[in-house]
């Protein structure tokens, strides 16, 4: 398990025990290797963080037309917090053949 995810899990347990805050925000990891977003389709909710892990020597982006645009430099991990509910399709501006999809549920 990833250190980040474990942290979130632990936090989730602590918060759960306190019983005051409902659904705890999660971090969802999307790997980028050889110009492929994996997993390509994910489900999340508002407030969750998407963490793109770029294994390529190439820069990529996660771009939603007319909305957000996240730069993902080579060999870097970039995080982005989802702010709006809805189904979004994103792609890489540099390699538009790279596509992903996030179903964002309301909080």
């Amino acid at each position: 398990m990833l250190p980040g995810l474990k942290f979130v899990a632990v936090l989730g347990v602590v918060v759960g025990a306190m019983g005051s805050i409902p659904a705890q925000a999660e971090t969802i990891r999307v790997n980028i290797d050889k110009l492929v977003f994996a997993p390509a389709n994910i489900s999340a909710k508002v407030g969750d963080t998407i963490q793109w892990v770029n294994e390529d020597v190439l820069a990529h982006t996660a771009t939603v037309k007319g909305d957000w645009d996240v730069m993902i430099p080579p060999k870097k991990i970039v995080s982005f917090v989802l702010k709006k509910a809805g189904d979004v399709e994103y792609y890489c501006r540099f390699h538009p053949n790279m596509k992903g999809r996030i179903a964002v549920a309301p909080k």
Binding site: K34, L35, F94, H95, P96, N97
Partner: peptide
């Protein structure tokens, strides 16, 4: 080379845009 194909395909789409 196989990764190269994907890169060139990406650039091709970008160039077409």
């Amino acid at each position: 080379l196989e990764t190269g194909v994907k890169i060139f395909q990406g650039h091709l789409e970008h160039a077409e845009h």
